[in-house]
């Protein structure tokens, strides 16, 4: 119990007597992702003619939907102070199951796809909350296991053939893909839950201070379990979106998903260790990354440059944030 208290102190906020001053820079820093998005849009628009158009918006939205949906679940897990690196494999497994189950009808397939995610999330949550194992390590181990299961389901990429669901996956409503509508609706829903319901408030509480939760009658274990179930559910929804868009699923796509998703969440401004952040922040983070990717592709620049840019943005934003908050503080 004590350890957790100290853990928060180590991160620095013990000098509470110093009041945070709202400076102009501070306001700018709070809007940093928005400002960056505007800068990036202006830059790319001036460099490439076709960039500033609804077509670009369309392709960005369809690019970000799958990973964005996974990031929603990841945000909740990071909010309660955990990490889930098994999301990539949950995504492959549920995508594969979706396609494998197609012969039994679309509703059955979708149901099984989502249930698989919930089930894996439940397992993760059970180990983490009931057996009190570190979430990172649990999900790493689970990741290996799930990677194997994904290979069992299928050796390689499988495709959906002649199914209306693929049309749905690539359908567009006035430049906005259907899958993006799903994604945006989910983001709005989760944002509402986080900000306006007791359930959401409890997530923030668990992330901030577990000891206080015990004292307030909030069950840390149940909230943790629930967060990982949600993460599993959203990962499988991500798998669903990914598969109906590409009409395919592969057991091998899982490995780089967690790092990408975690990056998007952190870039958005949700803090690792829990307690601060929301899914709209995550939306802006993933939008920025996709924007850069899309812009560089239009400019015919090698896609690897985006990683460089993301890395630099991550570190420099953190650096600026530190400089702003450490002013006048002793221990941050």
């Amino acid at each position: 119990m004590n350890k957790e208290k100290i853990g928060t102190a180590r991160d620095g906020n013990i000098n509470n007597t110093v009041k945070k001053k709202r400076s102009v820079l501070g306001i700018f820093y709070n809007l940093r992702i928005l400002i960056l998005i505007i800068i990036v849009i202006v830059l790319f628009s001036s460099m490439s003619k076709g960039f500033f158009s609804l077509n670009t918006l369309n392709s960005i939205l369809s690019l970000m939907s799958a990973y964005g949906t996974i990031a929603i679940g990841q945000t909740i897990v990071i909010l309660i102070g955990g990490l889930d690196v098994s999301v990539g494999y949950i995504m492959s497994i549920s995508g594969l199951l979706l396609i494998k189950m197609m012969p039994y009808g679309v509703p059955v397939a979708v149901l099984i796809c989502l249930l698989s995610g919930i089930f894996i999330g439940f397992l993760n949550g059970l180990i983490i909350s009931r057996l009190r194992v570190n979430s990172l390590i649990t999900t790493i181990g689970m990741g290996f296991l799930l990677g194997g299961v994904a290979l069992l389901i299928s050796d390689g990429t499988i495709h959906i053939k002649d199914n209306p669901i693929v049309d749905f996956g690539n359908g567009i409503f006035w430049y906005i893909p259907y899958i993006a509508i799903i994604y945006l609706a989910l983001t709005a829903l989760v944002q509402y839950i986080l900000k306006r319901t007791t359930l959401g408030l409890k997530f923030y509480c668990v992330g901030a201070d577990r000891l206080s939760c015990t004292f307030s009658g909030i069950s840390n274990r149940n909230m943790e379990l629930f967060a990982f179930i949600l993460s599993g559910l959203f990962a499988s929804l991500g798998g669903f979106i990914y598969s109906i868009k590409l009409a395919a699923a592969s057991p091998l796509i899982g490995s780089d998903v967690p790092i990408f998703v975690i990056t998007a969440v952190l870039l958005g401004g949700t803090t690792i260790g829990g307690g601060y952040g929301d899914v709209v922040k995550t939306l802006s983070g993933i939008f920025l990354i996709t924007l850069i990717t899309k812009g560089l592709t239009l400019l015919n620049v090698e896609a690897y440059f985006q990683n460089m840019i993301i890395g630099v943005i991550l570190i420099s934003l953190l650096f600026i944030g530190r400089k702003l908050t450490t002013k006048g503080r002793l221990f941050v």
């Binding site: 208290k5 928060t8 906020n13 007791t198 408030l201 409890k202 923030y204 509480c205 992330g207 901030a208 201070d209 000891l211 206080s212 004292f215 307030s216 009658g217 909030i218 307690g275 601060y276």
Partner: peptide, 21 residues
């Protein structure tokens, strides 16, 4: 309790609300 059971990241209103959850 002796241990501070307030949530640092939340506002006073939220903290008071939680107590009656």
């Amino acid at each position: 309790y002796q241990e501070n059971s307030l949530f640092d990241n939340l506002t006073i209103a939220q903290n008071l609300f939680i107590s009656s959850l």
